[in-house]
Amino acid sequence: MAISVSLQCLGLIMLAAVLLQTVAVAVSFMYFNKVLNTMQENFSRSSVSCLINAKLESEVEDSPAEDRKSDPCWQVTQQLHRHIEKKIADRFQREISTAMRNKLTGVLPILVRGVPLPKVAAHVTGVALSTKDPAAESSWNSRGYFGERILSWEGQRGLSFLQNMELKGGELLVPKAGLYYIYAQTYFRLPSMGETEEDGSEDEGAELVQYIYKKMSSYTGPILLMKSSRSVCWPRGQEPGLFSLHQAGTAFLQPADRLFVTVSNASTTEMDGRASYFGAFLVG
């Protein structure tokens, strides 16, 4: 009987100890949770207070460097300033990148919006020569094409460029099969009637024609891709007449195909790099 009473007392003591421990843990948790919430609230209030009551930059600079670094408000404002500066710099970089990309894509008449610059492209510009190249005056009877070929193209300097394409003998060499956008413009400077009368010419009009040809390794003669023409009258008076012909279109080209331009009046062509040019780029 005495043994059973002792066991009951021992059990009650153990249960009481467990209850006390549980209550102590609960009270401790509630206390630390309240302290943590209080610290977070105080930190938030102090951060907002730092932003609202922020000192002027001149006042901050006048204080010693060690005092500034140890000041919690200074640390909060510095972190906020760095975050704002980073966001502004990232946005500025994106806007600059977009503007530069639009400038570059505006150099060429891209057909499909949203695509980058083509990997295969060329834009060559006219070069003024002091003496006329005899090879630029071949007739279509002997060469298999109409007009006089333009050989004086520039592919490296000024506004011209070559991107994975070659310029040889006034011809653009196609490196890759695909659909190409091809364009050309020639600028003509016709002398006045007074100049033509001194030369003994009695013509009152002229037919200006521009051709774009391609040469294929598997075919003997050049193939005419495009033609543009304009009938003009010789200018009267002392000022010369200025005219231009422009044409553009698409054609499927094979590797090793060559593109070149001919005109009907090569002697009156003004080979200025901004007025006479020729190019092509891969679009698909």
Rank of each mutant, 00 (worst) to 15 (best):
C9N: 14
L19K: 11
T22S: 05
V25M: 04
S28P: 00
F29R: 13
K34M: 11
E41Q: 09
E41G: 04
N42P: 00
F43E: 10
S44P: 00
R45W: 08
S46E: 13
S46T: 09
V48F: 12
S49M: 06
S49Q: 11
C50P: 03
I52T: 13
I52Y: 13
N53D: 12
E57Y: 10
S58V: 13
E61N: 07
S63Q: 14
P64S: 10
A65E: 14
A65T: 12
S70P: 00
D71I: 08
Q78T: 15
Q78E: 15
I84M: 05
K86P: 00
A89L: 07
D90W: 05
F92T: 12
T98P: 00
M100L: 15
G106P: 05
G106M: 00
L108D: 02
P109A: 01
L111N: 04
R113T: 12
V115N: 10
P118K: 06
P118W: 02
H123E: 00
V124S: 10
T125E: 00
A128Q: 12
A128S: 14
T131W: 06
T131L: 06
D133W: 02
D133I: 03
S138Y: 06
S139G: 09
Y145S: 04
F146A: 15
E148I: 00
E154M: 06
Q156W: 03
R157P: 01
L162M: 05
L162Y: 08
Q163I: 13
N164T: 10
M165P: 06
E166N: 12
L167H: 02
P175Q: 11
A177H: 09
Y181Q: 06
Q185S: 08
T196E: 08
T196Q: 13
T196F: 02
D199F: 03
G200K: 01
G200E: 06
S201D: 14
S201V: 10
E204I: 10
E204D: 12
A206R: 09
A206V: 08
A206Y: 07
L208Q: 05
Y211W: 15
Y213W: 15
Y213F: 15
K214T: 12
K215N: 07
K215L: 07
M216G: 05
S218P: 00
Y219E: 11
Y219R: 13
T220R: 15
T220G: 08
I223Y: 07
K227L: 14
S231Y: 09
S231P: 00
S231C: 04
S231F: 09
V232D: 09
C233S: 15
C233D: 10
R236V: 12
R236C: 05
G237W: 06
Q238L: 14
E239Y: 14
P240F: 03
P240V: 00
L245N: 04
A248Q: 15
G249C: 05
L253Q: 07
P255G: 00
A256T: 06
D257N: 04
R258W: 03
R258T: 11
F260D: 01
V261Q: 06
V263Y: 07
S264P: 01
S267E: 14
T269D: 03
G273C: 02
A275Y: 13
Y277V: 01
F281R: 02
V283G: 08
G284S: 13
G284A: 12
